[in-house]
Design a protein around this nucleic acid. Structure first.
Length: 1096
RNA sequence: GCGCGGGUGGCUUAGUCGGUUAGAGCACCCGGCUGAUAACCGGGAGGUCGCAGGUUCAAGUCCUGCCUCGCGCACCA
């Protein structure tokens, strides 16, 4: 029944594609959850991607880690449901549609019709859904894409409304007028976490401008990097404590002065004393010094007299004081344009400056600002403004002959840009809605402390720092496609927040009853613009209320995912209660200010709870050169390149082993190939070795048995190694060290399993007769392979399922984790379970550390033997009569194995250590240093270079050894035994727990006729085998062999026979000396012997 | 500018409490081994451990400053 069939050649891509079909028809994903329906729940929450962009390799990375943990936990017995999700609202969608329909302004959209526009958005959302689905399925990310949560669904939106109403009722939601980063191209303001996405270094003209005082012939100098804000200037701010100077220009500027601006001799300028050197390009004399406070109240000439109406402001175009003014930049005087800077705005409101826009929402100067500027995009006006200022008398005609520009300087700094359109953002005063995050800061920090972050420094450092500086969340957008802000407002500011469709219907009915006309509001009313804009509600005092014309920041939508995915609180109450807060989320580190934050922000303000318990924050994906992958760079790696070449297994394994999950991953296509060749090919060949012989022999693991305790050392060794490696692997998973876990497991497969166990076991399976030894080997391979399959399954799910199915008849993804299934234990939760009970469910082979240590030594000795031969020029195939093992633990159980590996006739244990070894003493610095202090090096040298180490050691043991007045004790030195010169020997150092010992291997280099004959037989055999292979003969095919030799050792009959048997020769002829070989015979030469042979 | 994380042979990387020969893989060269795979084994070449100071008997490791890359922050006027 579970009898394996032969493996066949590996075609990873075909294998994976066929398996995908099988999984689909078996509903493997679904049953993997159903199998655990009684298990403790482990709650995963999928961060919703946007389906209107193509999935790239970085999505594969994130999905690998999501999938890995979910599969692992499932195997551990937990019930891990995985609802897919799609983020469907917001700017990315709108921009895509705007581009396609050529609607690059808000007017254009409104002309086109909001209704039609939103319909286009709704469709555009799914542009790449098929591509996402294909990628997701192909990489075997198991997630329920058939019942995903979708942020545009009415139910989802209704839950978001509900959440907003909770905030509203708690007083966290408020309407404000603030200066916000604003993008005129998209016509929307941004929240700080969106701004953070778009900082770019730019070089811009900065200008030093003269503000001519009205009552005397002097100008105050101020600096700005945004010349376009100058028409809006209505004030200057100085630090009251800062020392300013008034100085007079003594002589014209030097030749080196370039660029616009300047000053005449005799002109008087005012600026901070500290910044004179930095700013001034003229020789000046200081006329007076004074604190900023004496400047306060002075008035100056507006730069652009018609740009801002004074209205009733008493303080416009005067000097104000502000304590945040410093002398680190500029002139120590801050140009204040009320509407275009946060500080400016606050200062302006306090001081009563006129709040008047000189720039429209489209980013162009408003009519009436200045004839040369009106209607032009502000960022295109730098040169014009500089020109106007520089004219004689300046832009207002009241300045000095030299104009109002003192100096121009290119200035490079990081400036926020729109993360969608790449345009510079303008700080712009506007109406907006906020969530009062500052009110819950302490709670945010407390909840964050409870989250298990991987790596911890993202939580403590990066995210913690963000929370400690938390700002109120600007959640409204002047856009069309999104969750509408459910707040209705009267003209005089009375407000209602609607938290459900039912409530909306109720309010609409009320309004209709009061005679306000309204469209129908059915149960399935579409909760989008413009439908919701059409409803007019009634305030408690009988006034009409209109909806605030905003949509929500789309990050708010995804921040509601933990409950909105269940339509909480309207539906799915139990499901929500049982799954909040979630156990695990995993996204790129770029989500720190994105989803990681909004999830916590929403859960804190709505539920006063954290939203997730564990968060794996992944590093950025870079290209092979270490550059960020981006469409514009054209260095995006298409996952299909690898899915179709090395397969998803290798791609996933590569990603996990390439580095720690939180480190930036340099994605190297070669690395995927290497992983395929090393890890998966090796695994397949080990499996093939087992399966092919198992099929041949009709091996059935269930109908035969082999007591592990009775198996040969080699078997018990590999099983113990498996135990050790599996345990460490599991610990790695627990500690998020997936990379280390997988690297070690790969090393086990390649080194221990393939290169030692299988290599050493090959002949055991060639035996055609049934034997206990063969059975032991088959059972061992069976156990090792099935356990490996289960360990690898969460990371790379394909090949191991094929192997597991063929070996056991069951799917690996329905099987149990070899280290136990805590999820099935009575009373277990995702966080706690009975450790002892969990251990009892583990299924690992016996652990035998002593055996592992011995085998380790054996392997070292085998390697030492090869070194000895190379050092002594003795070819590997020529046997030695004796090999001596000097010192070390008892290895008699491995003598046969060693003899074969070393190609010696006989292993002898040498008890007289001094026959082949001598002693070396090495200083133990750690012990010596405290005693010898500064002399430690001299003492150490004396010990190292001792002429008579044996004598010295004897003195030390007798307690009479003294070097440089320091008594040397046994613990001050390490005794090393090394091979004596003149022998064909090598010494290896082995550590057995605390103690290290030195074991030497000595080979007897003397030849005998028997040895020479044997060696020659092996050489001939090896050449004939190679010939068989090139002739592509079947394994069981027999041949006819003829051999001619010159200058050869005499061949023993037994050796000639051995050649015949090994090479499956029916008729073997060794021609006598002197016979000449036919032309075309194979020829080779070894140690002076020339051999010809023919194979027929 | 401030904060975090890096910088180790051509490439990728390990390096614990500071301990004296800085370890591995890929690639390269030489040799060996193989009815064993795209393999394996041995050896070799290749390193100013970003730079400069400092602490120490001893620094890749600790301290200070600087350079550089990445990420994050922002009241930058």
């Amino acid at each position: 029944m579970a009898q394996p069939s032969a493996a066949g050649e590996l075609d990873a891509v075909r294998l994976e594609n066929e398996l995908l079909e099988q999984w689909k028809s078996e509903q493997a994903f679904d049953s993997s959850i159903q199998n655990r329906k009684d298990g403790a729940p482990f709650i995963f929450l999928e961060g919703p991607p946007t389906a209107n962009g193509k999935p790239g390799i970085h999505h594969v990375v994130a999905r690998t880690y999501k999938d890995l943990v979910c599969r692992w936990k499932t195997m551990e017995g937990f019930k891990v449901e995985r609802k897919g999700g799609w983020d469907t609202h917001g700017l990315p969608v709108e921009i895509e549609v705007q581009k396609r329909l050529d609607l690059m302004s808000n007017e254009a959209i409104q002309q086109f019709g909001m209704d039609a526009f939103n319909q286009a958005c709704r469709e555009s959302v799914w542009t790449y859904e098929a591509a996402w689905r294909e990628m997701t399925e192909r990489m075997a990310y198991w997630v329920d894409l058939d019942n995903p949560y979708v942020t545009l669904d009415n139910n989802y939106v209704e839950s978001c409304w509900w959440a907003l109403k909770q905030m509203f009722d708690k007083g966290y939601l408020y309407r404000g007028h603030k200066v916000l980063p604003y993008c005129p191209q998209t016509g929307t303001s941004y929240s700080s976490h969106e701004v953070a996405l778009g900082y770019k270094e730019v070089e811009e003209p900065s200008v030093y401008v003269k503000f001519k005082l009205t009552d005397e012939d002097a100008s105050i100098l101020a600096w700005t990097t945004t010349p376009w804000t100058l028409p809006g200037n209505v004030g200057l701010a100085v630090g009251p404590e800062v020392t300013y100077v008034r100085c007079r220009v003594k002589e014209a500027a030097g030749e080196s002065w370039t660029g616009s601006g300047g000053a005449d001799v005799g002109e008087e300028l005012i600026l901070a004393k500290d910044l004179m050197k930095e700013v001034l390009r003229h020789h000046v004399e200081i006329i007076e010094e004074f604190p900023g406070s004496t400047l306060v109240g002075r008035s100056y000439e507006p730069l652009f007299p018609d740009a801002v109406p004074r209205k009733d402001s008493m303080t416009a175009w005067t000097v104000l004081e502000a304590d945040w003014v410093t002398t680190t930049d500029g002139t120590g005087v801050v140009h204040t344009a009320v509407m275009y800077g946060e500080d400016d705005y606050n200062l302006g409101m306090d001081a009563g400056l006129p709040a008047h826009h000189t720039v429209g929402m489209d980013g162009n100067f408003i009519e009436g600002t200045h004839p040369e500027l009106d209607g032009i995009y502000v960022k295109d006006c730098d040169a014009t403004i500089i020109g106007l200022l520089s004219a004689a008398g300046g832009s207002n005609g009241k300045g000095p002959k030299s104009g109002l520009l003192y100096r121009e300087k290119e200035y490079s700094h990081d400036y926020p840009h729109c993360w969608r359109t790449d345009h510079p953002l303008l700080y712009y005063a506007m109406d907006s809605w906020f969530v009062r995050m500052t009110a819950v800061k302490e709670r945010l920090l407390e909840f964050n402390d409870e989250v298990e972050w991987a790596p911890d420094w993202v939580g403590e450092g990066r995210f913690g720092e963000w929370l400690r500086n938390v700002k109120d969340w600007a959640i409204s957008r002047e856009r069309y496609w999104g969750t509408p802000l459910p707040v209705w407002r009267t003209e005089d500011g009375k407000m209602k927040c609607i938290g459900s469709i039912a409530e909306l219907q109720e309010e609409v009915a009320k309004a209709v009853a009061a005679g306000i006309e309204n469209p129908e509001c059915p149960d399935d009313v579409d909760l989008h613009r413009p439908i919701v804009d059409g409803f007019t509600l009634l305030s408690d005092d009988g006034q009409p209320m209109h909806r605030e014309p905003f949509v929500m920041d789309c990050w708010f939508d995804s921040g509601c995912a933990s409950f909105a995915q269940w339509h909480h609180p309207f539906d799915g109450g139990e499901q929500f209660d049982a799954s909040f807060p979630v156990d695990y989320i995993c996204e790129g580190v770029d989500q720190t200010r994105g989803w990681f934050y909004t999830l916590l922000a929403v859960s804190t303000t709505v539920f006063d709870s954290k939203a997730y318990k564990r968060c794996l924050s992944l590093g950025l994906i870079l290209d092979a050169e270490g550059k960020k992958m981006s469409k514009s760079r054209g260095n995006i790696v298409d996952p299909w390149d690898h899915f179709n070449r090395e397969g998803a297994d290798a791609t996933r394994w590569y990603m996990v082993t390439a580095g720690a999950p939180w480190n930036p991953l340099k994605f190297d296509s070669n690395g995927v190939r290497e992983t395929y060749a090393k890890m998966f090919l090796t695994l397949w060949n080990v499996y093939k070795f087992h399966a092919d012989y198992a099929a041949l022999d009709g091996f059935d693991p269930e109908s035969s048995s082999s007591d592990p305790a009775q198996r040969p050392e080699l078997d018990r060794w590999v099983l113990s190694r498996l135990n050790t490696v599996a345990t460490e692997y599991h610990d790695g998973f627990v500690n998020w060290q997936f990379h280390k876990a997988c690297r070690d497991l790969e090393d086990f497969i390649v080194n221990d399993l393939s290169n030692w166990y299988v290599r050493r076991s090959r002949r055991r399976l060639w035996d055609e007769a049934e034997s206990g030894d063969k059975l032991a080997c088959q059972h061992t391979l069976h156990e090792v392979l099935t356990t490996l399959c289960r360990l690898i399954a969460p990371v790379s799910p394909f090949m191991v399922d094929i192997i597991h199915r063929n070996l056991t008849g069951s799917a690996v993804h329905q099987s149990d984790w070899p280290l136990g299934i805590p999820g099935t234990i009575e009373g277990a939760t995702a966080d706690h379970w009975d450790e002892a009970a969990a251990k009892a469910t583990a299924s690992l082979p016996p652990h035998d550390p002593a055996l592992e240590a011995s085998m380790n030594l054996v392997r070292e000795l085998a390697e030492a033997g090869r070194r000895v031969r190379i050092d002594n020029n003795r070819r590997q195939r020529l046997p030695c009569s004796k090999g001596f093992i000097v010192a070390g633990p008892d290895l008699s159980a491995f003598h046969d194995l060693l003899a074969e590996e070393l190609n010696v006739e006989f292993i002898q244990v040498e008890n007289d250590l001094d026959r082949f070894q001598r002693i070396e003493l090495a200083p133990n610095f750690r012990a010596l240093a405290p005693k010898a202090r500064a002399n430690v090096n001299d003492v150490a040298n004396a010990i190292k270079s001792s002429e008579d180490p044996v004598g010295l050691l004897a003195e030390i043991d007798a307690g009479t050894a003294t070097i440089m007045d320091i008594a040397i004790e046994r613990s001050d030195v390490e005794v090393k035994r090394v091979e004596r010169e003149g022998f064909a020997a090598q010494t290896v150092e082995v550590t057995h727990g605390e103690t290290t010992s030195h074991v030497s291997l000595v080979l007897d280099m003397n030849d005998t006729p028997e040895l020479l004959s044997k060696g020659m037989a092996r050489d001939i055999t090896r050449r004939v085998q190679a010939r068989r292979k090139t002739l592509d003969l079947a394994l069981e095919a027999t041949i006819e062999l003829e051999v001619w030799m010159e200058n050869a050792p005499a061949m023993m009959a037994a050796d000639e026979e051995w050649v015949a048997t090994e090479t499956r020769t029916a008729a073997c002829v060794f021609h006598p000396k002197g016979a000449s070989p036919p032309a075309g015979a194979e020829r080779f030469e070894v140690d002076g012997t020339v051999v010809h042979f023919t194979v027929v």
